[in-house]
């Protein structure tokens, strides 16, 4: 499959993520949108990694590890995302306890 399809898909996912982050006020949904963006990037990484690998194999280099960094990064990102979710959800729980709400617009305390 041409690489373009992957690019367009991940672009679409990413933009959906951004729009979600910008427009929704519910923290949990914002959170999910962030995950969506991360996964858009993951998708892109995997796609490019595969592409590079195939290109190297096509050049006659049958056994190679070209493109493996991309896959590695995906794992990194997944780990980070997991950590982020655990911390983030904890914050949200604390937030809910304090404000009885998960509305993001209440979070302007930093200003004061």
């Amino acid at each position: 499959m041409p690489i373009n399809y992957y690019i367009f898909l991940s672009l679409a996912l990413f933009i959906i993520g951004i729009i979600g982050v910008l427009t929704r006020r519910n923290v949990i949904i914002v959170f999910m949108c962030i995950e969506l963006m991360l996964n858009a990037v993951n998708l892109l990484l995997v796609a490019f990694s595969k592409m590079h690998h195939l290109a190297a194999a096509g050049a006659g280099n049958a056994v190679n590890n070209v493109g493996s960094e991309g896959q590695l990064f995906v794992f990194f990102i997944m780990v980070v995302a997991a950590a982020e979710v655990s911390v983030g959800l904890a914050i949200i729980v604390m937030l809910y306890r304090n404000t009885r709400s998960v509305d993001i617009n209440f979070l302007n305390r930093l200003k004061h």
Partner: peptide, 14 residues
């Protein structure tokens, strides 16, 4: 600029 609204920060960033 530092309104404290998370949304505006993110918007600015984007």
């Amino acid at each position: 600029l530092q309104s404290g609204q998370v949304g505006s920060y993110v918007l600015l960033m984007v």
